[in-house]
Design a binder for these strands. Structure first.
Lengths: 153, 153
DNA sequence: ATAAACCTGTGTGTTAGACACAGGTCAAGG
DNA sequence: CCTTGACCTGTGTCTAACACACAGGTTTAT
């Protein structure tokens, strides 16, 4: 079957199939008649596997590692169990980051509701944003204590 | 001051400063003696603003828009208030996605704990992953009802 | 003068595809 | 047989926000 047929079967775009072919995760035969790529049912299974793995947050490189095992007939299940455990931890961290960002944003909205607009000056672009904290920096270290409550975190 | 001095002042890398210079958000003078870029205090303020904005989740393109106003002496505060409101909504959506992913992952870990490892076959790479759901697809639509509880969502 | 240490700008790599595009292929119509 | 148009193909380039590599210039110490 050709690229767009496979794509349609799995409800994805031809570009996606081409991408995974380009990076070597799919290796279709080349039609001798017109040089078009000819995908087998196994290719479709592989593509389906890729989609499932991506859906769980696995990266392409991680999928490559999995294939490097299974393509030699070895089971990848042990490896996959390890990987997903690690992925769960990463996700937990990112989750915390999201929570922080969300709080930062709503704090800013709240805080700004009491402040007026201002025109920019030489070294002040928009006091609303500048009033928020941005990473520990030399500047911060040297800044005198402000009356404005910090939005950090 | 030169690139690395500015970087040190703000506790970032020289590469970061070079990046923002390259895309035109910073426009240092060129030293006539050696051609090195010469950053002013205003450049440092701009860089600090960029850091604060990035810290709130603003993209470089959004920062460009803000600068395009303030560089003409107009206040960007109104614009910024709008933008942050929108950003808060986007963050909310991403947050939901994180929650979903987290649940998917822990469901998988839980589910897999009852399943054995298996060697790959022609169209089965790792049954653990394949047992999870991956986007509504033609395949899914055609799949017979399984005894395995779906991990979707 | 010369060697070492440090600095600079620029080119390239990174994710996971999306988009553009020149050219090939195919069925219908003349 | 030829042509028109629709559809398809592979490949090159773009994305965000930097990080890294590297050849070559500069500064400092000897």
């Amino acid at each position: 079957m050709r690229v767009n047929q496979l794509a349609k079967n799995l409800n994805i775009t031809g570009d996606t199939v081409r991408f995974y072919t380009r990076i070597g995760l799919l290796s279709p035969a080349k039609s001798s008649v017109n040089g078009y790529k000819d995908y087998s049912d196994k290719d479709q299974s592989r593509m389906q596997f890729i989609l499932s793995a991506r859906n769980l947050g696995f990266s392409v490189d991680e999928i490559k590692v999995i294939f490097s095992r299974t393509d030699q007939g070895e089971s990848a299940c042990g490896l996959v169990r390890q990987m997903i455990q690690q992925k769960l931890e990463e996700t937990e961290k990112q989750f915390e980051e999201m929570v922080k960002l969300r709080r930062k944003l709503s704090n800013a909205v709240e805080d700004w509701s009491h402040k007026p607009d201002k025109a920019p000056t030489g070294n002040m672009i928009c006091h609303l944003i500048e009033g928020t904290y941005a990473e520990s920096s030399q500047l911060e270290a040297n800044r005198e204590a402000s009356m404005t409550p910090s939005l950090e975190d």
